[in-house]
Write a protein that binds this DNA or RNA. Sequence first.
DNA 1: AATAAAAAGGTGAAAAACAGCTTTTGTTTT
DNA 2: AAAACAAAAGCTGTTTTTCACCTTTTTATT
Lengths: 218, 218
Amino acid sequence: MNTSNPIPIAIIDDHTLFRQGLISLLSEFPEVDIIFEASDGQDMQQRFSTARTIPEVLLMDITMPVMDGFAATAWVRQHYPDIHVLALSMREDDKAIIRMLRSGAGGYLLKESKALELLNAIKTIREHGHFLNDLVTLRLLRNLQSNAGSGADLELSNNELKFLQLCCSELTYKEIADQMNLSPHTIDNYRQEIFQRFNIKSRTGLVLFALRNELISL
Amino acid sequence: MNTSNPIPIAIIDDHTLFRQGLISLLSEFPEVDIIFEASDGQDMQQRFSTARTIPEVLLMDITMPVMDGFAATAWVRQHYPDIHVLALSMREDDKAIIRMLRSGAGGYLLKESKALELLNAIKTIREHGHFLNDLVTLRLLRNLQSNAGSGADLELSNNELKFLQLCCSELTYKEIADQMNLSPHTIDNYRQEIFQRFNIKSRTGLVLFALRNELISL
DNA sequence: AATAAAAAGGTGAAAAACAGCTTTTGTTTT
DNA sequence: AAAACAAAAGCTGTTTTTCACCTTTTTATT
């Protein structure tokens, strides 16, 4: 059946140039048939409601305006469980990959991949529901290991969060205590608690931690 | 002459899929002729040394490993002043646009543009040396206005930069001194100097400063 | 009443912040 | 080539902040 009829796919990406390029590139392969393209998740939803035929594999970008790849993937997987999503992004950070897989993507491919890799991924994902390359398996493993080690996924009380946010400034701990209407000792308790919970050793570490976990925005 | 012979161009972008897509897309237009493609600035330099013909317009990405778009553009403009560079990126922040233009790019196009816009930009830039769309002119204006206000652009020596980057860690100043093979006193000089030059009052402030000015990446 | 969690307290050592001064090195000026 | 100058590197202190460890009080939970 693989050779008989082409795989119907769709492309969701906000970069027109990339989208058009991909279409042009894939049109050379008879194995795939592009049903539609969309510029973001919301756009995609509309295409679904009007499309005559429905794709089997979606090539999904992450960063998009209005409705991003995470939300779009989750929506598709909920409403069309038979459709498989192949994430296609330039981001290669753990957070993006993990979250995309958690949202229901069956595979993750970097935009720096080659055309044949993409084609292979599309075929594999249609047949098996997932496409696992080194990139993905490595990140999954790393995620598991880091989760097993530290255990806790950052749960912070309101005060701890506020404290961390105020740490990302030139305020001294004493001044932070003032701002929060608490004793400096209490602040010191927060500090110490967070230090050991997340293996942090300095105020600088606190700032980096807050930043990396997007607790504050620059 | 525009219609007689096609414009020789080259594509420098680390994302293979994007590159190939673009080639496939542009090959439909007889107005352009793709001489070569490269995955980053260094790769591009090699192509230049081996290429039979030389392109007139370069489609240049910014974020690339080894040698990025800024450096690559500066190199091209210095060694081949007749070649025009059209920046092709997803980044639309002032900093990237301004810096790319300063490096010698004649125009700046987002990857979310349409194919015809790209074609138009290529033609314009070949003929006039620059392609100024709303995106670019707006940023240029804004940059001018903001520069009139603040004035100072952060100039940092190599050591100061390295120092600032190392500050964004849990290393103590003494450890930073070790890493840089310098006396702690010298490190203290750097610190003091930067403190007063940029009105910073604490190590935390240094971290935030480095981050906001994109001296380091998380 | 027992328990757990949050807040407040104290002490001492290490690191960071700040001030002031000298020497070396490299560049421009004359 | 000497003088002048600026930038980088080095040194000696003092004060403040940060950090670690431990105890007590208060507040909420069961």
